[in-house]
């Protein structure tokens, strides 16, 4: 899984990675099934849980699934992505609070989009470089994600809550509307 997603030296000769076709966006989040995909970094799960609570109370989504990836380095296993695809209408992925986990979070987001599920990835702002590199590697330069100040791992629960509250408007905007810059 990792090899084919992250290693740009693999794949058939001449195999150009096409731009990921993003999923159609819902106009309204009310009643939609929300999935959460967290990594094992400290506060990642708490962050997406706080986001879920706000999306439920403010926008009427229903949290139906949360999954934690076994590795921060690698994208989510195929069976985990399939479960999210089958049971959720929209997915929040996070938090990319290190070099490898920000890159793999973007890879996860793009795989969900390719599977037809609108997804929003949360990355801490110190790791834009690796997040953008993964988007470019996946052929989707300009892929938009939500940033939160670095670090996330040392925050108290209230600190996580505050960050989630600040991030929700952009998360909602990206779930509802286009989440990629025009191809150059």
């Amino acid at each position: 899984m990792y090899d084919s997603v992250i290693d740009p030296t693999l794949g058939p000769a001449g195999d150009a990675r096409g731009r990921t076709a993003l999923a159609p966006r819902p106009g309204d989040l009310s009643g939609l099934r929300l999935g959460l995909l967290a990594n094992t970094k400290r506060n990642a799960e708490e962050f997406v849980e706080e986001v879920a609570g706000l999306l439920e109370s403010q926008h009427g989504v229903q949290k139906v699934l949360i999954r934690k990836k076994p590795s921060i380095v690698e994208p989510a296993p195929p069976e985990m992505l399939e479960e999210l695809r089958a049971e959720c209408d929209v997915v929040v992925v996070g938090v990319g609070d290190c070099g490898s986990c920000s890159a793999s979070a973007v890879a996860d987001g793009l795989q969900l989009e390719e599977a037809g599920i609108p997804a929003v990835v949360i990355v801490s702002d110190a790791f834009r470089v690796s997040a953008d590199a993964m988007a470019t590697l996946q052929g989707t330069e300009g892929y938009q994600y939500v940033t939160t100040p670095h670090p996330v791992a040392n925050l108290s629960r209230q600190g996580v809550r505050d960050r989630a509250t600040a991030a929700v408007p952009e998360i909602v905007a990206l779930l509802r509307g286009p989440n990629v810059a025009p191809a150059s």
């Binding site: 990792y2 992250i6 290693d7 740009p8 030296t9 590795s71 921060i72 380095v73 290190c98 070099g99 490898s100 986990c101 890159a103 690796s130 590199a133 993964m134 590697l137």
Partner: peptide
């Protein structure tokens, strides 16, 4: 584990 894989770092 926080370092990106080598191929990605090289890219």
């Amino acid at each position: 584990e926080c370092l990106v894989p080598k191929p990605l770092m090289q890219s």
